[in-house]
Design a protein around this nucleic acid. Structure first.
Length: 462
RNA sequence: GCUCCCAUCGUCUAGAGGCCCAGGACAUAGCCCUCUCAAGGCUGUAACACCGGUUCGAAUCCGGUUGGGAGCGCCA
C-alpha cells in the first residue's frame, strides 16, 4: 500500500517552527516512500480561524518548498460529509444525543475536581432515547466501556490506554457543527491517510480517534507522535523567544533549506552528518528513527547551518535571496554577475543573507557611512601620501582585475618594506567607510575602477 | 488530582549489555593561518538525573524516586 501523509494545521495563529517540523517529517516520509502528501486546513473553529492565518500557512509552505500532492482541503467545506457520518452513527447506535447543558457539565466537573478525580462526562444520556424540550443537544460518541486501546506508535512504541479512562466525547456541538477529534477521524479515513505524523500533544487523543475509526468500520492508520520543540531556554516556545513565524526567517535572511536542515536534525540524526541537502534528507529520513524527547531550539546552530548552506550553494542560486534582502534595504542591482561575485566574496563572513546585504551596502550607494573611529585611525594626515600613491598605481592599471589590484598593492608594500595591512586599511576605510570588508583586491574589483578611485580621492586628508 | 509521555556535555545528538574512564556538531577557550573581518585547521573544557535490582559485565534491561511535559473543553 502506498504511503499517504498529511499536514493539518489549524489557521488560528502563525505557522511556527514546531508545526513546520511536523510538516517536514510528514513531507519527507511521503517523498521518501514515493507516497502522497496532503495539506489540510482544520478550520472548524470559525471563531478563531482567519483567512490571514490560512494565507500565512500557504505562503510559508510554499517558501519552504514543502509541496503537497493533494489539497489544500478545508474542513469547513466538508460539513455535509460530517453530517452524513454523524447521521449514520446516530442510526447505528455508536453515537447519541446528550441534552446536558453547559452549566450542568461545569458543575459535574467541579465536583469531580473537588473529589480529586479526573473530570469526565459520566455518560448520563448514553442510554436514553428521550429528548429534553428547550435544549439543543450535542452529539456524543459512544466510547467502549471496557477493554483497552493500544497505540502502536512509530516513535514511542506501544502505548496502552484503558477505555475506562476515556469518556464520551462531543462530536457535534449543539449548533450542529462537528468538532476537531471527529473531523480528523473522518478526514483521515476518507483521504486514505496511512501515516498520521503529528505533535505528541495529540498522543492522548489517539485512543479516542482509534475507537471512532473502529466504530466506523475503518482500520486506524499508523501513528507517529513527534516531540515538541522548546524555546532556547527549555520552556515552551512562545513569542518572547523571537521569531515564531516561518516567514520571519525569510525576512531575517535564512535559506529555506537551512531552516529545514536545522529542523530535521532536531529529534533525528543520520550518523554524524550535520549538513543535508533536500535530496539527502529525503534519502536518509525515516520516521522510525525520530527521537522521543523534546528538544530546545538553538539559534546559533541555525545560523551556522545557514552559513554552511550559503557557502555550499551555487552563487547563482543565492542571487534572488540576496536581491530580496537588498530590496528591503532600498538597494537595487540588476547585475547578476556582480551579485554572484559579491556572494562569493561575502558568504564566509555573513551568517544570513540579511547580514550579507547589510555588510554590502557600500557597493550599492556612494553615500557611504564613514565610521568616525575608523577614519580617525586610518585616514589621519599621515595617510595622505600613501593613499595618493595607491590612487596613482591603481589608475595606471591596464585591466581592473583582482590579481592586478593585488599585485599593485602588494608591490607597493614590498617596496616600502611595510606590511600589506599598512597600505590596505586606509584604502578599505576610504572605500567602505569601515575597517571590515572582504579581501581588498576582490572588494575593489567588484566595486569598479571609477568608484574606487573616486572614493580614495575623496578620502585623502588635506 | 487522575491518565499518558519523556530524561547522555550549556544546546542538538551517537549509543539498541562488553567496541564507551562515552563519539560527532553548535557554542565556548587557546593556538595556527592572515591586509581587516570571517572562513578554515589543530587542541582543550564539558554529559550517561538519582537510588535499587538483573548480569561475570549496564548509558544501554527491570523497578522505584526526582524533575520536566502533555491531555482531562459544545479549542484545535
Amino acid at each position: 500500500m502506498s504511503v499517504v501523509t498529511r499536514f493539518a494545521p489549524s489557521p488560528t495563529g502563525l505557522l511556527h517552527v514546531g508545526g513546520v517540523r511536523t510538516a517536514l517529517y510528514s513531507w519527507l516520509y511521503a517523498r521518501r516512500m514515493a507516497g502522497k502528501f496532503i495539506l489540510r486546513v482544520e478550520d472548524t473553529d470559525r471563531e478563531r480561524s482567519t483567512d490571514e492565518a490560512v494565507r500565512i500557512i500557504l505562503e510559508g509552505m510554499k517558501w519552504l518548498g514543502l509541496d503537497h500532492d493533494l489539497g489544500p482541503y478545508y474542513q469547513t467545506q466538508r460539513f455535509d460529509r460530517y453530517r452524513e457520518v454523524i447521521a449514520r452513527m446516530l442510526a447505528d447506535g455508536t453515537a447519541y444525543r446528550c441534552y446536558c447543558t453547559k452549566e450542568e457539565l461545569d458543575k459535574i466537573r467541579e465536583e469531580q475536581t473537588a473529589r480529586k478525580e479526573k473530570p469526565r462526562y459520566p455518560g448520563l444520556w448514553r442510554d436514553r432515547t428521550d429528548a429534553r424540550p428547550g435544549v439543543q443537544p450535542v452529539i456524543r460518541f459512544k466510547n467502549p466501556l471496557d477493554g483497552a486501546v493500544v497505540v502502536e506508535d512509530l516513535v514511542h512504541g506501544s502505548v496502552t490506554f484503558q477505555n475506562t479512562e476515556l469518556d464520551d466525547l462531543i462530536i457535534a456541538r449543539s449548533d450542529g457543527t462537528p468538532t476537531y477529534n471527529f473531523c480528523v477521524v473522518v478526514d483521515d479515513m476518507d483521504m486514505g491517510v496511512t501515516h498520521v505524523i503529528r505533535g505528541d500533544d495529540h498522543l492522548n487523543n489517539t485512543p479516542r480517534q482509534m475507537n471512532m475509526l473502529l466504530a466506523l468500520g475503518s482500520t486506524p492508520p499508523a501513528y507517529a507522535h513527534v516531540p515538541m520543540i522548546l524555546g532556547p531556554d527549555g520552556a515552551k516556545l512562545s513569542k518572547r523567544h523571537g521569531a515564531v513565524s516561518v516567514l520571519e526567517y525569510k525576512d531575517e535572511g535564512f535559506l529555506p533549506d537551512a531552516l529545514l536542515n536545522y529542523l530535521v536534525r532536531l529529534g533525528w540524526s543520520h550518523g554524524d552528518q550535520e549538513v543535508f541537502t533536500r535530496e539527502e534528507m529525503i534519502a536518509a529520513f525515516d520516521i522510525h528513527d525520530v527521537n522521543k524527547a523534546a528538544s530546545a531550539f538553538n539559534n546559533e546552530k541555525l545560523l551556522w547551518l545557514n552559513q554552511q548552506h550559503m557557502v555550499r550553494a551555487a552563487p547563482s542560486a543565492l542571487v534572488p535571496h540576496l536581491r530580496y534582502q537588498l530590496d528591503r534595504l532600498g538597494l537595487k542591482c540588476d547585475d547578476d554577475a556582480m551579485l554572484e561575485g559579491l556572494i562569493l566574496a561575502q558568504r564566509e563572513r555573513a551568517k544570513t543573507l540579511k547580514e550579507m546585504a547589510l555588510n554590502s551596502r557600500f557597493f550599492f550607494t556612494d553615500a557611504i557611512e564613514m565610521d568616525p573611529k575608523a577614519a580617525a585611525k586610518h585616514l589621519g594626515a599621515d595617510a595622505a601620501e600613501g593613499l595618493r600613491e595607491v590612487h596613482k598605481r591603481l589608475s595606471a592599471l591596464g585591466e581592473w582585475t583582482a590579481p592586478l589590484i593585488h599585485d599593485a598593492l602588494n608591490g607597493l608594500a614590498t617596496e616600502r618594506g611595510v606590511g600589506l595591512g599598512k597600505i590596505v586599511q586606509p584604502v578599505r576605510v576610504a572605500i567602505s567607510g569601515g575597517t571590515v570588508s572582504p579581501p581588498i583586491d576582490a572588494t575593489l574589483a567588484l566595486l569598479g575602477r571609477e568608484r574606487t578611485l573616486k572614493r580614495i580621492e575623496a578620502a585623502i586628508p588635506s
